[in-house]
């Protein structure tokens, strides 16, 4: 025979379980309601018609180590650093296409592009700091291209391949942004020695014409 106090305890515990289940269900419902309401209230971005424009990409080819300027029609944002970002993202995307002459694994490559006016002025506190370096001497605009580590880690490792990628980026910036005169590279926001073992990422590159083959189309 089950003692009375055990039966009482059983019913009390059962009641507690039921109560907790109800509270949990109610909580779930409330959360769902809140989320749906929130989604409903999210304003849709106003439809913006961005007309596509003609840009030039400095495309690399592994076959003959060439960089050729080709034209593409793409829609770009109006803000300059966003334009540069979109343009470089498009450039790298070209290399992930089937039959690419300079194959690179697909995936996001460029995290962000920042534009900075040089020379950088050192702050008063930094007396004696050598951080000045070349960035305090160089003039013009500098693009800081922040690459994704996943991109650099999966890039084909080799002098030829890595150099072509760097030349391709520099040539594309040169063709579309005449005011950008220098470029530096970061990987996930930090400086890194090489792209993937070879091409130097610690230096400031001059943005120059890197094409070495007649352009297809204009220029």
């Amino acid at each position: 025979m089950i003692p009375r106090y055990q039966r009482v305890l059983f019913w009390i515990l059962s009641g507690a379980i039921l109560l907790m289940a109800l509270v949990l269900l109610r909580g779930c419902e409330q959360t769902r309601e809140k989320l749906t309401r929130h989604r409903d209230e999210t304003p849709l971005s106003a439809p913006v018609v961005t007309p596509s424009e003609t840009v030039q990409l400095a495309l690399a080819s592994d076959t003959d180590g060439s960089i050729t300027l080709v034209e593409r029609e793409i829609a770009l944002p109006s803000e300059k650093s966003a334009r540069a970002h979109a343009l470089l993202a498009r450039l790298i995307a070209e290399y992930s296409y089937k039959n690419s002459a300079h194959p690179i694994e697909s995936g996001p490559a460029v995290d962000d592009v920042f534009l900075i006016d040089l020379p950088l002025h050192s702050h008063s506190g930094a007396v004696g700091s050598d951080f000045s370096g070349e960035l305090q001497v160089l003039t013009g605009q500098m693009a800081v291209v922040n690459l994704h580590e996943a991109f650099t880690d999966h890039h084909t490792s080799g002098i030829e391949s890595e150099t072509l990628t760097i030349k391709s980026i520099i040539g594309t910036l040169y063709a579309n942004f005449p005011e950008i005169q220098h470029v530096r590279f970061l990987v996930d926001g930090r400086s890194r020695e090489t792209l993937n073992g070879h091409a130097d990422l610690l230096r400031t590159y001059a943005v120059v014409n890197t094409t070495n083959k007649p352009a297809q189309g204009v220029r």
Partner: peptide, 23 residues
């Protein structure tokens, strides 16, 4: 905000590069 982030990044990069150069 973006500008600040940019300056921060470049400072970081330059500082490390400067350190390497000095060494």
């Amino acid at each position: 905000m973006r500008k600040h982030a940019a300056v921060l990044l470049v400072t970081l990069a330059s500082a490390s590069t400067a350190a390497i150069t000095v060494r």
